[in-house]
């Protein structure tokens, strides 16, 4: 189903599209001040945990032991200093960026192609193939952890970025194919058919005509997968042991001791680790939420 005829327009633009006046419809009128008040209150409550996270990261251990809700007495940056230099977070961030972007690049390219073959390909195979991919959403990662590690060893990929990138790309396939296939179903094949009639090869048709049409859902695929890869702890720990290539979560959690944790330092590390994703999110938020719908509905 769809009620959005012009999906080729980037969602950010669609929101401002003059052909689709949204304001009048939204002016339902009654109860608005009350609703606004309720929502503001709810937002404040909802932000409370994030407030605690940030405030604690600026506290000395002695202040952490004091009033938990109070703001820090001064802008103490020691935790950030310790986390950044002590855990070499700068280098870890570069590693995380490289691994995350290459993993997602891989997932987007091969996932979109697979979804296209499923939706527009041979009817007989499409449903079983899609089911096979969906099964991946239900399998706990631990089930195949040991055999997968042995496989990477036999391929000689341990302690290389490639092992993590391949593992991530494979693990992202179910969600990626699911999102792309769902979106493709809602798209008319008219453009591709026109391209085919004009003599374009399948390869050209896909990359020049179909893939650009997938832009809204690609935003969704990228952000959902980025969250998962960026935050993953065990895969990089296992495949990249050796501090020169550790990722952000691995570096941050090296501050968790066996018997005690340095809250201030860990929280500072967590804020640093979350910031890049949050910044990307804040700039793309409209795109992301819209893309979500584009990708998930249908």
């Amino acid at each position: 189903m769809t009620a959005v005829p012009d999906t080729s327009i980037a969602p950010a633009a669609a929101d401002r599209d003059p052909r689709r006046p949204r304001r009048p419809r939204l002016r339902n009128g009654y109860g608005r001040p009350v609703l606004e008040l309720v929502m503001v209150a709810l937002t404040v409550v909802y932000l409370f945990p994030l407030y605690i996270l940030v405030v604690t990261s600026f506290k000395r251990p002695v202040d952490v032991a004091g009033n938990p809700v109070a703001p820090p007495p001064d802008l103490y940056l020691g935790n950030y200093e310790t986390a950044w230099f002590g855990a070499d977070l700068g280098r870890a961030m570069v590693n995380s960026v490289v691994i995350t972007s290459l993993s997602i690049l891989g997932a987007v390219v091969i996932g979109a192609m697979a979804a296209y073959a499923i939706v527009r390909g041979s009817r007989r195979w499409s449903t079983p193939t899609l089911m096979l991919f969906l099964l991946g959403l239900m399998i706990p990662a631990q089930l195949g952890m040991v055999p997968l590690y042995m496989l990477m060893r036999d391929l000689g990929l341990l302690q290389t970025y490639w092992s993590v990138i391949i593992v991530n790309t494979g693990a992202l396939m179910p969600m990626t194919v699911f999102l792309y296939a769902g979106f493709l179903r809602t798209q008319s094949p008219a453009y591709e058919e026109a391209a085919r009639i004009d003599g374009a090869t399948w390869w050209q048709t896909f990359w020049r005509v179909v893939f650009p049409l997938l832009r809204p859902v690609t935003g969704t695929v990228v952000i959902i997968n980025a969250i998962n890869v960026w935050n993953d702890f065990l895969t990089p720990l296992l495949y990249l042991s050796g501090s020169s290539s550790r990722t952000l979560p691995v570096a941050v959690f090296s501050f968790r001791g066996e018997y005690a944790s340095e809250w201030g330092i860990i929280f500072a590390g967590l804020v640093i680790a979350a910031l890049p994703v949050l910044i990307v999110y804040f700039f793309l938020q409209r795109h992301i939420i819209q893309g979500f719908g584009g990708g998930l509905k249908g």
Partner: peptide, 25 residues
């Protein structure tokens, strides 16, 4: 020296798999 530092539980998990695979430090 190439080092890996991780909390004891996670480290033990990783080492068990690596020892089985013959890739332990």
């Amino acid at each position: 020296v190439e080092t890996t530092f991780a909390e004891a539980g996670a480290l033990g998990e990783q080492l068990t798999i690596q020892l089985n695979a013959g890739t332990a430090p």
